[in-house]
């Protein structure tokens, strides 16, 4: 089996995540889809690390995880504070910043 399969899987997961971001309205679910996209990228990094025989890809994936964790913490805090003021977690309801 060629390692390309991992990359193909990753591409599909990334696209699924992107579509999820576009079609879901619950902010928490949108966030989950973003996490899915990040994970897809991580899989790519790990696979390339293996193909190249170096560990740098894994280090990069590690950093992605850390940054993603930080992002999740802040993002979820923003979602809760929005929910507290607007009684809604739908991204469509927060649309005041417009024309």
């Amino acid at each position: 089996m060629s390692p390309t399969n991992y990359l193909l899987l990753s591409a599909l997961l990334f696209s699924i995540g992107a579509v999820g971001v576009l079609v879901r309205r619950n902010a928490v679910v949108v966030f989950m889809c973003i996490e899915l996209m990040l994970n897809a990228v991580n899989l790519t990094l790990v696979t390339f690390s293996r193909i190249n025989g170096t560990l740098d890809g894994q280090v990069m994936a590690f950093f992605v995880m850390v940054v993603a964790a930080a992002e999740v913490v802040v993002g979820l805090a923003i979602i809760t504070s929005i929910f507290r003021t607007r009684q809604s977690s739908s991204v469509d309801d927060a649309n005041l910043l417009k024309y």
Binding site: A18, V21, L22, V23, R25, V91, D92, A94, N95, L96, L97, K98, Y99
Partner: peptide
């Protein structure tokens, strides 16, 4: 043109994609 600024994040994300 400013009608493009709907305020919907998902529209913006669509444009980005």
């Amino acid at each position: 043109l400013r009608r493009l600024q709907t305020g919907f994040v998902r529209s913006y994300a669509l444009s980005m994609l």
